[in-house]
Amino acid sequence: MNIVEFKRIDGRKHDEFRPIEARVGVLQKADGSAYFRLGNTVAIAGVYGPRKVHPRHEEQLDRAILRTRYNMAPFATTERGRPGYSRRSIEISMVTRQAINPVIFLEEFPKTAIDVHIEVLQADASTRCVGINAACLALADAGIPMRDLVASCSAGKVNGNIILDIAGKEDTEGEVDLPVAYYPKKKHVTLLQMDGIVTREEAKEIVKLAVGGTKKIYEAQKSALRKKYEIEGEKNDIY
């Protein structure tokens, strides 16, 4: 790592996150839900299930199927996005599912579906990471049996500097973006994507920075979950 700390466009340190905010139980209808914010990137996740599988042929006799849908609201970007499925959203939905899959006890609910819906409401980089963070909270809120939470963030290279949680101008000017998701108990990277040009050493350094960053996300997730279920108790005292 560079010895002299350089200045980032928004004044953050190389390994500093934007403000993190997490809330659990933000929707009525969903069996579990959560809100996650990283600076100006905001996503809400809702979980339905385990529930019956439609269409029926997708049903698995020995486990639940996990379905994820990542969707970006048309107003989430500077220029309006086209609503509905895109190749991008199909891919992100897929890698999101693979990122979350390892921590869920799918075998506990055979013949069912667990549906995770992620809505990105504001996009300022790392939308898939924020979506995964919200999704894991929503899954825990829905009472889905889990081994751990998965925490996600990204790191990258901007003007030759390796930095955590790229955002704003860094995103448009940056050379490399590398999102990861991490399953802390197992020390497993469950999502990793990268685009941009790096040397082998830089690639490894960025991976390490991103993986290290998930620790703070993980703490934010855990305290949001505790808060929701403890607040239920606190609220009661007011009455």
Partner: peptide, 29 residues
């Protein structure tokens, strides 16, 4: 109050928990 992945201790894993490397963890909030 525990959340998924919280360490409960060394022992046997009953309902709502799982065992890994001799430790018992929570599956649920």
């Amino acid at each position: 109050l525990v959340i998924p992945g919280d360490l409960l201790g060394k022992g046997r894993a009953g309902h709502g928990t799982y065992e890994e490397d001799d430790n018992v963890f929570s599956r649920f909030v």
